[in-house]
């Protein structure tokens, strides 16, 4: 069972996730629910999704970029970024762009290979929710956000680098 941390609290996950191979025929079984759709499905069948589903979010894989939805990110309550492997650094840049430059105020969720020892930096990049890999200890993960009390760099939590705070 995947545990979810949102804003540093363990919470139930209300969102179903459709895999990237899914088509619009998957919508009927999820009627009325909150569903995370792969970017491809948003681009091809968004109207249909909005008609059938309770709420929609979008998830991007690490190699995908934001260009196709960049000018309407506010249409999504939730944008999830997938980690095929925890050491894939690309979603860190996507999240920073979403949060710090595009000003996205909704939920940015890390999905996939999400592990304890990346959480602190993920949060600093703008992620505020984390669908942990199923073997992760939730309490251990909740402690990760306190690994550091300060930071040199501007972060999603504190948009001033250290030299403007010293």
């Amino acid at each position: 069972m995947t545990s979810l941390i949102r804003n540093r609290n363990a919470v139930p996950n209300e969102w179903a996730l459709l895999q990237s191979a899914s088509g619009p025929d998957a919508f009927s079984a999820l009627r009325g629910r909150k569903v995370l759709l792969p970017l491809e499905l948003i681009l091809s069948d968004e109207d249909e999704a909005r008609a059938q589903l309770g709420a929609i979010g979008v998830w991007l894989d690490s190699h995908q970029d934001l260009a196709s939805i960049e000018n309407r990110i506010a249409d999504f309550q939730l944008i999830a970024l997938n980690f095929p492997v925890f050491s894939d650094g690309r979603p860190f840049s996507l999240a920073r762009r979403l949060r710090l430059e595009l000003g996205f105020t909704g939920e940015i969720r890390a999905i996939g290979d999400v592990l304890r020892d990346q959480l602190c930096f993920l949060e600093r990049c703008g992620f505020n929710s984390f669908a942990l890999r199923s073997d992760q200890d939730v309490d251990e993960c909740l402690s990760a956000f306190d690994d550091f009390s300060s930071t040199y760099t501007a972060t999603a939590l504190n948009q001033e680098p250290i030299f403007r705070r010293r």
């Binding site: 050491s87 894939d88 650094g89 860190f92 840049s93 920073r96 990346q118 602190c120 930096f121 993920l122 600093r124 990049c125 550091f148 930071t151 040199y152 760099t153 972060t155 680098p161 250290i162 030299f163």
Partner: peptide
């Protein structure tokens, strides 16, 4: 030194290619 501080624990660039 300025670069050292910017690059140390930079959250975006800990998992570069």
């Amino acid at each position: 030194e300025i670069i050292r501080q910017w690059s140390t624990f930079h959250p975006e660039f800990a998992y570069l290619p």
